[in-house]
């Protein structure tokens, strides 16, 4: 069996000596991110690195580095941040957020970046399927008759297979099947 690795795209490989042109940068990006719920504290980051030092993903992934992602946002590297799969790597474990001396809500910030990335079509493959399941059934694992039979056998009460009203709530969510055109 093979496990798939999402290797970093060239945009993230800043590498030594690569010269960024000012024209590639979008200095409004940090403001845009800080307007998202959870992104508010980003400008306070003083890059102490305590987030990266404790990050479990950082230990096993070659390029994921929350401190560097924050720097990239502050520097205005919009495309590099939003087009790369790396924002989806955050495990939302809150280790960094608990320790941040500047009160930057890093996990919430990563969530906000995911929201932004998704709006430009960058998301893991499984996301649209999850959204559709929730929209149609209100749960990620809808129960069918067979499941409820198994539940009964285990001495558990049967449960409804779907919650239709959830679809009404999620009606405003964009159809994630196809990426939005930029």
């Amino acid at each position: 069996m093979d496990a798939q690795r999402n290797d970093p795209s060239p945009a993230v490989e800043m590498g030594e000596g690569r010269m960024m042109d000012e024209g590639e940068l979008d200095f409004g990006f940090a403001q845009e991110v800080s307007a998202e719920p959870g992104g508010e504290g980003i400008v306070k980051c003083f890059a102490c690195g305590s987030c990266s030092a404790g990050c479990p993903v950082r230990r096993f992934h070659p390029t994921f580095n929350p401190r560097r992602i924050i720097r990239m946002v502050l520097l205005g590297m919009r495309d590099a941040v939003l087009r790369d799969p790396f924002v989806w790597l955050c495990a939302t474990c809150f280790t960094c957020q608990e320790r941040c001396p500047q009160g930057v809500r890093i996990a919430d910030l990563m969530r906000a970046l995911k929201n932004l990335a998704l709006r430009s079509g960058n998301m893991p493959e499984g996301i649209p399927m999850q959204v559709n399941l929730l929209r149609e059934k209100g749960t990620l694992y809808p129960l069918d008759e067979f499941d409820n039979k198994k539940r009964t056998k285990a001495g558990l009460p049967p449960l409804p297979g779907a919650h239709e009203d959830v679809g009404v709530l999620l009606g405003d969510l964009a159809d994630l099947g196809r990426p939005k055109e930029e």
């Binding site: 496990a3 690795r5 993903v57 799969p85 989806w88 495990a91 493959e125 996301i127």
Partner: peptide, 13 residues
């Protein structure tokens, strides 16, 4: 962390 939240984005990690 168990890593579960990363599963969808990067199974290997």
């Amino acid at each position: 962390c168990c890593g579960g939240s990363v599963l969808m984005a990067d199974q290997r990690t």
